[in-house]
Design a protein around this nucleic acid. Sequence first.
DNA 1: CCCAAAATACCCCGATTACGGTATTTACAG
DNA 2: CTGTAAATACCGTAATCGGGGTATTTTGGG
Lengths: 218, 218
Amino acid sequence: MYSNCSSDKIHIMIIEDDAIYRESIADLINDTDTLICEHACESCEEALVVLEKQDVPQVILLDIQLPGISGIEGISKIKALSPSTQIIMLTVFDDDDKVFNAICQGATGYLLKSIGGEEIQQAVTQVVCGGAAMSPVIAAKILKMFSEYNQPTKDYGLTEREKEILKILVEGKNKKQSAAELFISQHTLDTHLKNIYAKLHVHSQIDLVSKTLKEHLL
Amino acid sequence: MYSNCSSDKIHIMIIEDDAIYRESIADLINDTDTLICEHACESCEEALVVLEKQDVPQVILLDIQLPGISGIEGISKIKALSPSTQIIMLTVFDDDDKVFNAICQGATGYLLKSIGGEEIQQAVTQVVCGGAAMSPVIAAKILKMFSEYNQPTKDYGLTEREKEILKILVEGKNKKQSAAELFISQHTLDTHLKNIYAKLHVHSQIDLVSKTLKEHLL
DNA sequence: CCCAAAATACCCCGATTACGGTATTTACAG
DNA sequence: CTGTAAATACCGTAATCGGGGTATTTTGGG
């Protein structure tokens, strides 16, 4: 899937506004024997100019807190110019929203600043080989989001048939269509629906669909 | 948050049906200077008996493919007896469903078998310190699930007011209630709703709510 | 064999919705 | 100033829905 798990040095770009930190990371990278950092930019704007010249790195280390185009906004702009470039977010922040947004934008890594050269090297290698790199704390956050999102589904005691009906209704079909699809009369569907309403304590289709989708009942 | 990032050895339990692999992992663990494995069980059933005796480890390495109670089912049973125990799934499988289910059940790690002792040590330490441990390939899968789930929201050209109305309707309220909440007449809401229907190409509230929630339009 | 749960089917009717009009006011860009 | 988009408001009607009944058949456990 990705070309470089092999011999050549992996080209890295850094985008980070703090000059001292930027150079220190660049040094760390250039001290390794597998990575090379040719571009160390202080803003997304500067980086995008470089990318437009087709001078695309395999991996970009991208700070999240940047003046002008923020790191999170930058992800999609970078991806637009160079879809194959993998982006690793690098930040001191670990608040859920930022992590969440960055990942939704398609970052393949999320590391807390404070990492050493060895860890960067490891992370970059993993990313280039098709994996993802995350600081353990970030990984835990993501897993937590996942399991919270899929809370234990409450059991409203729906029968199999009722679930089947619910599934079709939630697709956006009306009663007539749904009944036809299940080869039952509209009256029967009506009866089932009444029972479903009672079990879920709802009184309209919007209520039903809303509750079903929000509580992931299916 | 978690007690042991400190001196004492971390107690590990292994649940794995393959005797050879089980013992080999146990040996790897006992060869380290920070971990100790006192219980190496061949099934969840066996492990649960040990846990009932209050002999709870800090971390459990849990195989996913087990006879009887599967690894995924085991997670919740283990958590019920010992909520503080962190569970790391250990498996040869990396298919999305298994990963997804395990994580939703509350596993804090997911490692592919084939790992060495050093990696186990690292993973366990991370988990005990409140982080999560994932093989890079698994991490990438999870990030992919995340970003795919939050696909770029299509723009149907809804106005602010229309979005506002949509938001309220999706809560499960009917037209009358929604209109009241926005201090507008039901006729006005009707007009807006007609426009929304046209823009989203839907023809009923159920359709509307379904599409809105599925495409995360809000 | 009997009971209970589930699935099937039908009736009725007031409330609500969907959607076709039309029309006025506000806000803002050209 | 003028035109367009957006928000506001109203009318009418066919269609659908919600909820109140009742009733038969199927299925599986005791």
